[in-house]
C-alpha cells in the first residue's frame, strides 16, 4: 500500500499520457493534467507556509542566533497574507458595485499593491541587480588563460564584450567592410560566433538533454528510480 500503489500510480499516469498523445480524442489530456498540477501546487502552499511558520517559530522559541529576524519573517508573512487573502481595502469592480469581493486583489492603490510595489519589487529587483557585481568578480577570477579550454572561454567572452562597446567597434573599423577580410570586423565576428558556434553548441546540448530526459522519465516510470517514494 505504501509503496506499490504509488509506483502503480506513477507508471499508469505516465504511460497513459504517452499513449494519449497519439489519440486525437485524448491529446489534450496533458493540458488538463497541467491545470491539475497548478491546483495541487497552490494547495501545497499550505504545507510550505506552515513549514515556514513552524521553522521560524521554533527559532524564536529556541532564542537561537538571529531569532529576532525570524520574528520579522513571521510578521511580514502574516501581514501580507492577511491583506492579500482578505482583499483589504479593495473596492468592488465598477461594473459590479454590489459584490464586495469582486475587486482585483492587486488593484492599483490597494494595500496589497502598496506591498507589491514598494517592498516586493524593489527587494527582488535589487537582488537581481546584484548579478552585475558578481559577473564582474567572476570574470576577474575565472577568466584566466590556464589551458586551451579556458582561453577559448575567455577569448570568446572578450570578443563579444568588446563588440558591445563603441571602442571595440572602432578598433576594427579600418577593415574594409566589403573586402575579403570583412569577416574579421568585430561586429561580423560576433554574429559569426553567435550564429555558428553558439548555435552548434546549444544544439548538441539540447539533443543530449532530450536523451537524458527520456532515460530519466523511463527510469521513473519503470520504478528504477524511486527514492522519492520513501521507505516501506
Amino acid at each position: 500500500m505504501k509503496r506499490s500503489v504509488p509506483l502503480l500510480i506513477t507508471a499508469v499516469g505516465g504511460f497513459a499520457l504517452i499513449v494519449a498523445y497519439f489519440i486525437p480524442y485524448t491529446e489534450a489530456l496533458g493540458e488538463t493534467v497541467a491545470v491539475w498540477f497548478d491546483i495541487l501546487a497552490a494547495i501545497a502552499f499550505i504545507l510550505g507556509g506552515g513549514n515556514l511558520l513552524k521553522q521560524h517559530l521554533k527559532k524564536i522559541s529556541d532564542r537561537g542566533p538571529g531569532w529576532g529576524y525570524s520574528g520579522v519573517v513571521i510578521g511580514s508573512f502574516l501581514i501580507t497574507l492577511f491583506i492579500g487573502l482578505s482583499k483589504v481595502g479593495v473596492p468592488p469592480l465598477a461594473e459590479f458595485p454590489d459584490f464586495a469581493w469582486s475587486g482585483d486583489f492587486i488593484g492599483i492603490g490597494t494595500p496589497f499593491w502598496f506591498i507589491y510595489q514598494y517592498a516586493f519589487v524593489p527587494l527582488t529587483a535589487t537582488m537581481f541587480a546584484m548579478l552585475a557585481f558578481y559577473i564582474a568578480s567572476a570574470a576577474f577570477r575565472a577568466f584566466r588563460a590556464k589551458n586551451l579550454e579556458a582561453i577559448l572561454l575567455l577569448g570568446t567572452a572578450f570578443i563579444i564584450l568588446l563588440g558591445r562597446t563603441f571602442a571595440g567597434v572602432a578598433l576594427t573599423n579600418w577593415i574594409d567592410p566589403t573586402g575579403p577580410f570583412a569577416g574579421l570586423r568585430i561586429e561580423n565576428l560576433t554574429v559569426y560566433i553567435m550564429s555558428v558556434f553558439n548555435t552548434v553548441g546549444n544544439r548538441a546540448i539540447m539533443i543530449g538533454i532530450a536523451l537524458g530526459i527520456v532515460a530519466v522519465s523511463l527510469k521513473v516510470l519503470l520504478g528504477v528510480d524511486r527514492s522519492y517514494l520513501g521507505k516501506e
Binding site: A138, A142, N202, I205, M206, G208, I209, G212, I213, V216
Partner: peptide, 26 residues
C-alpha cells in the same frame, strides 16, 4: 539542463555537469 546558466556554473564552480551529464548523475 538550462543551457543559458551553464556558462556561469562553468566559470564559478569547481565541477559542472553539463546537460546530459546531469541526467546521468544518479
Amino acid at each position: 539542463a538550462q543551457p543559458a546558466q551553464l556558462p556561469f556554473f562553468v566559470a564559478a564552480c569547481d565541477y559542472t555537469l553539463i546537460g546530459e551529464e546531469f541526467f546521468a548523475a544518479s
